[in-house]
């Protein structure tokens, strides 16, 4: 309450380093966020080293042993309806899901940064266009749009990434724009301008570093949202094309056998749900680290 007038010093202020240190300390104080971060790192490692860890070829059917339970015949988590090893598919499915989510979010963020910065800093025609576009998108539910895009683009990994990114970049662009508009009236930016700094310098040295907090928070919530979009498309029958596995398509396939062999949906669902939770808590932690409401 006392620090009402604290400007976010980000990487610019004298104590730039200690500010990041403070944020990291605040983040660490949130045990849940810390554990979640560790969990995400583990997931990422599993995904990266899927080939090394996976005991079987994830797409190799074995009709001799279909729908077996866990711990049978060397299949750690059993087999699916085509006799494929669930554990191996889980690793590769995790990889696909994380790859799609991360790439889609990065793509959306990149577009959002470019358009948001230009619209927010320079205003004018582009800004009007952006605002008009967001106005329309308010009427177009992101999911509906993604479904239509996925229908149009097909079921390859990249078309799904594109569908998700196109569906989500506008809201982020609006956020960046709002940050730019807010920050460019701050005195240190005015001061920089009066000292003859150009638009590029101002944006790169002052505006972007200082809007890092909100952008980071938006990203940390954007990744689970993208994961969700991927699995959502899968549930509607628009996930990655078979035989490739993603957590979304595994959940969808597993759901068909939920009463026969719940084992099939249990594993991908658990990994997915825990992943979602971990991202949510990390996002929470980042938000609190950047914007301490207490003390």
């Amino acid at each position: 309450m006392t620090a009402q007038h604290s400007t976010d010093s980000g990487a610019v202020g004298f104590d730039g380093v200690s500010e990041w240190g403070r944020r990291w300390r605040r983040f660490q104080r949130n045990r849940l966020a810390l554990v979640s971060l560790a969990f995400i790192v583990v997931l990422a490692l599993l995904a990266v080293f899927a080939e090394v860890i996976a005991p079987f070829d994830p797409n190799q059917p074995d009709f001799g042993k279909r729908l077996t339970g866990p711990f049978t015949d060397g299949n750690l988590l059993g087999t699916d309806v085509l006799g494929r090893d669930v554990f191996s598919r889980l690793l590769f499915g995790l990889r696909t899901a994380l790859f799609i989510a991360l790439t889609a979010e990065l793509l959306a963020l990149l577009c959002a940064l470019i358009v948001g910065v230009l619209a927010g800093y320079f205003g004018g025609r582009l800004d009007q266009l952006l605002m008009a576009a967001t106005d329309v998108m308010y009427a177009f539910p992101t999911y509906l749009f993604a479904v239509i895009l996925a229908t149009v683009l097909g079921r390859s990994t990249w078309s799904i990434i594109l569908a998700i990114a196109i569906g989500s970049w506008l809201t982020q662009a609006r956020l960046v724009r709002a940050q730019m508009i807010k920050l460019k009236t701050f005195e240190y930016v005015e001061a920089g301008r009066s000292m003859g700094a150009g638009a590029g310098t101002l944006i790169l040295r002052y505006l972007l570093p200082n809007s890092l907090g909100p952008i980071l928070v938006a990203t940390s919530f954007g990744i689970p949202a993208a994961m969700l979009a991927e699995s959502g498309l899968a549930i509607l029958g628009l996930g990655v094309a078979p035989p490739e596995a993603s957590l979304g398509t595994m959940i969808t396939e597993g759901y068909k056998y939920v009463l026969v062999q719940p084992n099939l949906i249990l594993w991908p669902f658990t990994v997915f749900a825990l992943g979602m939770l971990a991202f949510t808590w990390v996002g929470d932690g980042i938000r609190d680290a950047f914007d301490p409401k207490d003390d």
Binding site: S231, I251, V258, P262, I265, L266, L277, W281
Partner: peptide, 23 residues
């Protein structure tokens, strides 16, 4: 409550099916 926010629509749906139908 924060846990709940991580389970939108179909995730919650599947969880409920796993608990109330399958189990």
């Amino acid at each position: 409550v924060t846990t709940a926010t991580a389970f939108p629509t179909y995730l919650a749906g599947i969880l409920l099916v796993l608990i109330f139908c399958s189990w």
